[in-house]
Amino acid sequence: MPKASWTPRSSAYLNALSREIHKKLQKAPASPSQRLNLLQELFADVALEVDDRAKDIILSREEDRPADDGGDGPLCFYGVLADYYVRVPESGKPILNLLVQLWSQSFASHIFALLFHKWLFEVELDNSEVLLRYSSALVQGATNVFWIDIQTNTRRFQSLFRYLLEEVVLEPSRLNKIPVQAQRDLYLLLSRFILFYNSVDKLESFLKQVPAFPNAFLVGGPDDFLVIELADQLQKLKVEPVLLHYLSQIKFLRGMELRMTTSARLKSCLYSFTSPGGPMYPTRAVRHAAWDALDLLFPVGQYPRHLISLFFRLLYPWYWPSSCWNFILSCVKAILYSLLGLVFSFWEKLMKPKSHYS
């Protein structure tokens, strides 16, 4: 979200929102039976997209308004409030104190990550123990909300991801404000979701900012850490459009210098999506996308892999009918496209005006 200049009207509106959030949080400790529902409702409220009426109040100028197709996703209340708590930190302190009391409850870290992810890197906290607690809550909460985007195949929390990537990890002055362990956790978190949030253009800069890991001697360099996290992430994905998106974006890993163990890990992960049946049960679209990614990243041994795969397919006769049918459809489509290409080229030649000098 652009940095808006708060008018008295917008400040009053955001202050009223903060008071409502504070009231809901006050009810949570008093009613243990309703605590989960209250926190879940509050999370849904702050993650809600800002409607046109609220935009007229919050965004005072036309240049403050983000484009509808902006790269940071839709404008949500958490983005507006996160900016507000940086500008007016005293308004967020009562909310923060209540969230600390509810630290172990579900959705508490979600709400903290959404509302205070900017505040954490803008204020000065001298207590290292408190800073570590806040940093851990941020990473945990961000992980949970990013998985919500994964499960629903949306980009509602893209602005949170972009801030953590571009304004924190790529800005050492902010990144160094949190403990080293939190820096490592944040790096691993962003590694798992960088393909999902279409941030591969920042991949080179991102890999240069990797913090020091104690087991780097065994695992490898930044490229290895990134690929290991992505391979683990791929194994957990169950939403087909999201998995296809990852497989289409994974081509940007081409050319990375990986250790043999890391390379084998990624190859094994991709290969697991190329065969029908358990344990993955990938669809035809996923299998073809996995083959494309595997052939692009590991061109050596491409043809033997396909022959071995075909041999094992022949061992399962119940797959033959569908394979033959898809093969026939592919041939028919190829013939039709070739015929259409010939017709169009003939039509262009027919309609092309003849030269007077020919």
Rank of each mutant, 00 (worst) to 15 (best):
F146E: 01
T154Q: 12
A231F: 03
E63P: 00
F161W: 10
K352P: 00
N15A: 15
P282V: 09
T283M: 09
I335G: 12
L218D: 15
V100K: 00
L170I: 03
V219M: 04
P321F: 11
A44W: 06
Q158R: 05
L138E: 02
L314Q: 13
L195S: 04
K202Q: 14
P94R: 03
S330F: 14
N127Y: 05
V100T: 06
A47Y: 05
H117E: 02
N144P: 01
S275V: 15
V343L: 15
R35W: 00
L98D: 07
C269V: 13
R265H: 15
F196E: 09
W320E: 02
K236E: 15
A142Y: 03
Y271C: 07
R287S: 08
L131S: 07
Y246W: 08
P8I: 04
L294K: 02
Y303S: 14
A47K: 11
K118H: 02
L270W: 07
I250K: 01
W325Y: 15
R155T: 12
S104D: 15
A54Y: 02
Q183P: 03
L329E: 10
D295K: 10
R19V: 14
A290H: 08
I335Q: 11
Y281C: 10
R87V: 13
K236N: 13
Q158N: 08
V88A: 11
D68A: 13
F116H: 03
L336N: 06
K55A: 13
S191A: 11
S323A: 12
C324M: 09
R156M: 06
W320D: 09
R265W: 11
Y271E: 14
S199T: 04
W318C: 12
R184F: 02
Y316C: 14
L340D: 10
S355L: 13
L314R: 12
L190T: 07
M256Q: 11
D56M: 01
L188V: 06
V168L: 02
L342Q: 13
D295F: 14
M351I: 00
A54L: 06
L253A: 08
K118F: 02
G73T: 06
V88R: 13
A142G: 09
V239Q: 13
L340W: 14
A16V: 00
L125F: 01
V227D: 10
F298P: 12
F43S: 06
L339T: 10
H288K: 15
S263G: 11
W103D: 12
I21C: 09
L160Y: 03
L186K: 09
F312Y: 15
L99D: 04
S11L: 15
C331Y: 01
L186G: 05
C76M: 11
D45G: 08
T154K: 12
F196K: 02
D201P: 05
L48Y: 12
H245K: 13
T283Y: 04
F112A: 07
M260A: 10
S60W: 13
S135L: 07
L237R: 08
W147L: 10
D292M: 05
A137N: 08
L226P: 13
S199Y: 01
V242D: 00
Q34I: 11
Y163R: 04
W6D: 06
L207T: 01
